[in-house]
């Protein structure tokens, strides 16, 4: 079944390559079609005001702001994991911003381009504070709850083998809720999943403060927005929206001070905000493209803090997602 689907997706990507100029289509349509998840805490979920919110959602808003100067000109399509790629190849959406891991096969054979890594995720461990563990290296002999059929299951045994540790028992469950219930009821000492998921799961536990996520990350799950092959202008646009968000944070340009920063004498800020040079025209927009983005959504740090950061219920530290200048690996290419 998977193979057939992939073959179908492959066929479609051939057909999809014909209709280029996504930006023109978006402009005539008057909105960006953005694929998001059907609900993932902190990344895309409907809020109390009946609007989509989250990291992935805000990125699409940033694209809309860059093009239309209006972050509401986005149409969100909630997609399941199965049909997200079909939706992108068939042209139903312009950009897929749906916590999708950047892998080689997706980037190449499926016919997509990843525009960047909006969130560096990875597998982590959730344990009870009362156990007194400080590091994943101390997990020797622990029983571990994991969702079956996920890469998490394979990663955890790899991790133990690589560190010459004996894992007591890996207990796999069919669904996420089942796995969480088993962990909560004490069937196992450790619950393992991607870190963003661990943070979301922790909220559902009684006395969330009694549980802690261990510092180690044992797998690479770079999540990012992707576009179809065959339209380099659109690919550039999405990519540079991402870089603009990062550069803005690095240069201290925020949603609040962006109006003042337009008058800044810092050459980097001037180039980013379009007061020096017309770099925005290179992606089919006007020179002040980045100003529109920052005004609408804020810089990367603001988006992060608003949706998943330490002040939100999820409370995920920046970690790898911090700027390269602050110990993370988020690195915006220079606007020059």
């Amino acid at each position: 079944m998977k193979r057939i689907l992939f073959a179908a997706v492959g066929l479609l990507s051939l057909a999809g390559a014909v209709n280029a100029a996504t930006l023109d289509e978006v402009k005539t349509r008057g909105s960006v079609n953005c694929g998001v998840s059907q609900g993932l805490p902190g990344f895309s979920s409907p809020n109390d005001k009946n609007e989509w919110g989250g990291l992935d959602v805000d990125f699409c808003r940033a694209i809309a702001a860059a093009i239309f100067n209006d972050p509401t000109k986005v149409k969100f399509s909630p997609l399941s994991a199965k049909d997200r790629f079909t939706a992108l190849t068939s042209g139903a959406i312009d950009v897929l911003s749906r916590n999708t891991t950047w892998t080689m096969s997706r980037d190449t054979t499926l016919g997509f381009n990843f525009a960047g890594v909006i969130y560096y995720d990875g597998q982590g461990f959730l344990v009870r504070k009362s156990v007194g563990l400080k590091s994943a290296k101390e997990l020797q002999g622990a029983s571990i709850c994991v969702q079956t059929g996920t890469s998490n299951e394979l990663n955890v045994s790899d991790f133990f083998r690589a560190n010459n540790m004996k894992n007591g028992e890996v207990i796999a469950f069919g669904t996420l809720d089942e796995t969480v219930k088993a962990y909560e009821s004490g069937r196992c000492d450790v619950f393992t999943a991607d870190r963003s998921q661990l943070a979301a799961v922790r909220l559902k536990l009684t006395n969330a403060a009694d549980h802690v996520i261990l510092p180690e990350t044992i797998s690479k799950e770079p999540l990012g927005p992707l576009v179809r092959h065959g339209d380099d202008q659109w690919f550039d646009l999405v990519k540079w929206v991402y870089f603009a968000l990062l550069n803005a944070e690095e240069l201290g340009v925020t949603q609040k001070n962006v109006e003042e920063q337009v008058n800044s004498q810092n050459p980097d800020v001037k180039r980013l905000l379009g007061t020096d040079g017309k770099y925005g025209e290179g992606i089919g927009l006007t020179a002040d493209w980045a100003v529109r983005i920052i005004k609408a959504t804020g810089n990367y740090g603001e988006i992060y803090d608003r949706n998943v950061g330490p002040a939100t219920p999820l409370g995920i530290e920046r970690g790898l997602n911090n700027l390269w200048t602050k110990g993370g690996i988020q690195y915006g290419m220079p606007v020059r």
Partner: peptide, 24 residues
């Protein structure tokens, strides 16, 4: 729900993922 149409139950499931309301 499996074809991305949110009916009553689908909307409910989506609402569960709002971190502002996640509780036991």
């Amino acid at each position: 729900l499996i074809v991305s149409i949110f009916d009553l139950l689908g909307s409910m499931r989506a609402a569960f993922t709002d971190p502002n309301w996640a509780s036991p």
